[in-house]
């Protein structure tokens, strides 16, 4: 057998390389999946030519196209903030990948406070959106930025409450521990509680990604992709497309980890163990991503005030009640 000893910094470099590969590839695959899933739900084929087989290289070609585009910064824009904003959006999303366990041993860093870290880092990209909207010197961008800030704050809470439920059931904040305690996935067991938390999480995640039906902040037909109105070329890709796809894959992974049992088999039958955890995890992540993609062609857009009411008057009370019920379940059952 090999016997490799690596210095800490070497391990760190390898981890960084892995993450910086996984995120863009995930985003590209997510983008392709979005093209194809939406197309087939809408009676069309979607991209068919790039790359030959069913247009598999579409998103790659898209990316190359955007590379060649001119990087335009409006004269009235605040140049520094404007150019920093895409990074401020992108980096927190990349950081969420650090704690998602792909398999028992395949995790960049198993933090004791995994969930807490996820939630904390996940809400950071709001700053980037505000930066983008404010520095663009564009009214549509400003409206979009304020909408997204309000929305992300409101929908952070249902996700937090759903995560609290999971943490209570697992008795740990570490994501590895959470996966290990899921003999049956939390979405199935305890009956009802886990499933409602799962729904809360899904709705919150869709809103956090600002996707239909909660895509008011970037509503194309109203405020023309909101904070990103003035962006072009690679900056646009990083701020919007890449971020959205990266976000989606990350949320898919988080959902799979928290509610679907991560790298564990979906049902606790011993012979299913021969399937490696990586495959279980990927399948569950893809299922989550499909859920997110499925929602988009189905619904119209919710208005900003309706969206806020839905969060504060419905989702959050439900989440709070759910925390109470979970407490009772953990104590007495």
């Amino acid at each position: 057998m090999f016997d490799i000893t690596l210095a800490t910094w070497q391990i760190l470099v390898i981890k960084i390389i892995v993450i910086l590969t996984v995120v863009p590839v995930g985003a590209l695959v997510g983008g392709y999946a979005e093209h194809k899933v939406m197309a087939h739900l809408q009676h069309r084929l979607g991209p068919m030519y790039p790359g030959g087989f069913h247009g598999w290289a579409t998103t790659l070609a898209d990316g190359i196209k955007f590379l060649y585009k001119e990087d335009i910064i409006p004269a009235a824009a605040d140049r520094k903030v404007f150019s920093l904003a895409p990074a401020a959006i992108m980096v927190p999303i990349i950081m969420t990948y650090l704690v998602i366990p792909i398999d028992r041993a395949l995790i960049v860093e198993d933090l004791d406070v995994g969930i807490f870290y996820l939630l904390a880092v996940g809400s950071l990209s709001t700053i980037g959106l505000l930066m983008a909207g404010w520095s663009s010197a564009n009214k549509y961008a400003l409206i979009g930025a304020l909408r997204s800030a309000a929305q992300l704050i409101a929908y952070e809470l249902p996700i937090v409450l759903a995560a609290v439920v999971v943490a209570m059931l697992a008795g740990s904040l570490s994501l590895i521990d959470i996966v290990e305690t899921q003999n049956w996935p939390f979405a199935i067991w305890p009956p009802g509680i886990g499933f409602i938390a799962f729904l809360l999480f899904t709705v919150g995640a869709v809103a956090e990604m600002t996707r239909v039906p909660f895509d008011m902040p970037v509503a194309e037909s109203e405020i023309i992709t909101g904070p990103f109105t003035e962006y072009s070329g690679m900056r646009y890709i990083f701020a919007h497309m890449f971020a959205e796809m990266g976000h989606m894959v990350a949320f898919g992974g988080i959902g799979a980890t928290l509610f679907l049992g991560g790298y564990q088999p979906i049902v606790p039958i011993p012979f299913l163990d021969f399937i490696p955890g990586v495959i279980w995890f990927s399948a569950k992540t893809m299922f989550m991503i499909f859920l997110f993609l499925w929602i988009r062609p189905t619904f119209p857009r919710v208005r900003e005030d309706q969206l806020q009411k839905f969060a504060w008057k419905f989702l959050i009370p439900v989440g709070l009640a759910l925390v109470l019920v979970t407490g009772a379940w953990v104590l007495y059952v």
């Binding site: 739900l41 069309r44 239909v212």
Partner: peptide
């Protein structure tokens, strides 16, 4: 109208 409200699917059905 659907597209303006954010529902993209009606477009494709109508065009078919």
């Amino acid at each position: 109208f659907g597209a303006e409200l954010g529902a993209i699917t009606p477009t494709f059905y109508a065009f078919r």
